Computed example of a mutant assay.
Amino acid sequence: MKTGGNTLLITGGGSGIGRELAREFHALGNTVIVAGRTASSLEETIDGREGMFARTLDVQDAADITRFATALIEDFPSLNVLFNNAGMMAKEDWLADPVDLSVAENTMATNVLGPMRLTAALLPHLRAQPVARLVNVTSGLAFVPLAHTPAYSASKAAIHAWTQSLRYQLQDTNVEVIELAPPGVRTALTPGQSTRTSYMPLEDFIAETMESFRIEDTPDEVVVQRAKMLRAAEANGQHAEVFQMLNDNYEG
């Protein structure tokens, strides 16, 4: 797929990975729409850049996704790339009595149902384009879970499996399906994460990730070097060892 001349939608584009990916793809000559809940953050992302647009969207709200998708297709009929990037991550205490399920429920609504609903709303349009691409952002934690954030890890494992299934179902269509699985990156996804020295600097993650997206034959899974240990742990017979190390060294 060509790297320029596309029309991309990136959810969660008001900060972090979504914001920086949006700016990188815009610099390659693409029209980019960023979506998220907070209009002011989205406006900071586009920052007067011609060819970048901001649209508000609550991915937890099924009705809002329907509204958003209808308006988006009308405003941007050339839309041919969707990045399902919006997500949330929070710690959970399963030793509490009673257990508070609100974090798990909100995480699943945002990280699982959100991408599924938005993809369902946009996929018929994407399939009608000459070439199209669907990118689902998961996590290294899809492969080795962080015990302190069980719903987040489970949600990313679910999207990994869903992405593989979509790739198979869409293999004879014009829609290319890609998974982007980051390691821990210095963003504001969780409190204090942006300054944790053990996490990958955001600019380094974006630079390495874009090496894969700048080539037309982008791999099915975009996994930077820092995430490959997690991705390969099961296949290498090291899952238990990596799980223990990951969770014993957690800084949150």
Rank of each mutant, 00 (worst) to 15 (best):
T163Y: 03
G29P: 05
S139T: 13
R67H: 11
D93S: 06
H148C: 10
R19H: 02
L189T: 12
T70Y: 00
A39W: 08
A158M: 09
W162D: 07
F68A: 09
E74V: 14
Q193C: 01
S194T: 13
G36Y: 03
P219F: 12
R127H: 10
P182A: 12
R117F: 02
V223T: 10
S155E: 01
D172K: 07
P191M: 14
N30R: 05
A71G: 07
G184Y: 12
G51C: 06
S165C: 11
L141M: 11
F143A: 08
V99N: 05
E176V: 11
V34A: 03
N6A: 15
V135N: 00
L146H: 09
L180N: 04
L166V: 09
D58V: 09
E179Q: 15
T197E: 14
F243C: 11
G252I: 06
A69V: 06
L122S: 05
G51S: 01
P124E: 02
T187D: 10
K91R: 15
L180G: 04
V177A: 09
A109F: 03
T163P: 07
V137E: 02
V242R: 03
P182H: 08
A227F: 04
A104R: 04
A151Y: 01
I17T: 05
E211W: 04
E44D: 15
N106H: 13
P115F: 04
L166F: 05
G48W: 05
I33F: 02
P145N: 09
R19A: 11
A90F: 10
S102E: 12
P130V: 07
R196V: 14
N136H: 02
P191S: 13
A69W: 00
V224W: 03
V131H: 00
T66A: 15
L95T: 15
D93Q: 03
L82W: 04
I178N: 05
A22E: 01
A120T: 09
M89S: 14
T107S: 13
R37Y: 03
N247P: 06
T187C: 11
I33V: 14
A54I: 06
R55P: 01
L126N: 04
Q171D: 13
V177E: 10
R19M: 12
A232G: 10
V103G: 07
V131K: 00
M116A: 09
D58Q: 07
P145R: 05
D61C: 06
P77K: 11
A22I: 01
I178E: 03
A109L: 12
T7G: 07
E179I: 14
L230F: 10
F143E: 12
A154N: 07
Y168S: 15
T149Q: 12
L118S: 03
D61W: 02
M88R: 15
G14H: 01
D75V: 13
A235K: 09
L134N: 05
L230S: 10
M108S: 09
R133G: 08
T209K: 07
D58I: 09
D217H: 10
R55W: 04
S40Q: 12
L9E: 02
S153I: 12
T209M: 13
A227I: 08
L57S: 04
W162K: 03
F76H: 08
I46G: 01
P145C: 11
S198Y: 06
I206K: 01
L202N: 03
T119C: 06
P124R: 07
T3D: 12
V103M: 08
G184L: 14
I159Y: 03
I10H: 01
D100P: 13
V131M: 00
F76K: 00
F205N: 01
P115D: 07
E24Y: 04
